[in-house]
Write a protein that binds this DNA or RNA. Structure first.
Lengths: 144, 144
DNA sequence: TTTTTATTGAGACGGCTTATCAATTTCAAA
DNA sequence: TTTGAAATTGATAAGCCGTCTCAATAAAAA
């Protein structure tokens, strides 16, 4: 039976091959866990995987998540004092509305904005691979 | 003669009054310096003000910039490992096109996108204070 | 299998930001 | 203007997050 994450595993292996890197048990384990999330911090993943592999080090998780960023599978986003690693392959890339008062995060998608982004990019000779859009403001509760 | 930053100084004083805080020489000095910038880090401001007041402490700068955030004059943005304090009252916000191959950065502005952002925000009950839009891709030269 | 090379885990380390605390400054009340 | 309670400051210690170091280990090539 084929893995649920065969496609992403392929992307990872291709990246590893191109850079003389190795496919390890840890990288496989972390990728599997990562792909089940929309976004996660290294610390969260550390605790989540502690049961499956109590000896998996935090440094390895950081290194691996950064590797995923280089392979185009993840994208780092700095929020508060921590780094969130977003799952890029998650269908329907979504953007964020972030309340600057209470920290609440609402995810949204907007095709019109994405179309305009493409327009801006092509006008400047760029081909978009990915993007990041964050709207900061006050949610309805905090405005009062 | 009236100060160039009378309006913002008023906002600050009102906030101080409401929270039983005091108007100090340091807060005035830091606000004046801050309002001349579009965005700045605490460290940058520390060096910038070192000449005017060699004894001004870094902790005071952090405390004061955070105070400005609470007063609505500034907004913290985590970029890389540092915190950028954005001058909210500064107009002419621009976004970025970033080449993932050569690192080239092109700035742009797009009113249509901004209008759609407002739409998304209000649909979710948010009032936007600021935003961040970054498009990552390949520039015309790197695509070949 | 042997050899080469990358990876791992554990903890040390470093940068950025906040907490601590005695001395000082502000500001309201006398 | 003087007084006194309360907030602020500056210096530095402490804390947090993420990266670096390095000997031991695992993966891939020969």
């Amino acid at each position: 039976m084929m893995s649920k994450h065969a496609k992403e595993m392929g992307v990872l292996k291709e990246h590893l091959g191109k850079h003389q890197l190795k496919f390890t048990r840890q990288r496989e384990l972390i990728l599997d866990a990562f792909l089940k999330q929309e976004h996660i911090t290294a610390e969260e993943m550390y605790h989540q995987l502690a049961r499956k592999d109590p000896h998996l080090g935090l440094a390895t998780i950081y290194r691996t998540l950064n590797l995923f960023c280089e392979a185009g599978l993840a994208q780092a986003r700095h929020f508060g004092t921590q780094t969130q690693y977003d799952n890029v392959s998650h269908k329907g890339h979504h953007d964020h509305l972030i309340c600057t008062s209470c920290g609440k995060i609402v995810e949204f998608e907007n095709c019109d904005i994405e179309r305009l982004q493409e327009e801006v990019a092509s006008r400047n000779g760029f081909t978009i691979q990915t993007h990041r859009l964050e709207l900061y403001g006050l949610c309805s509760r905090c405005r009062h």
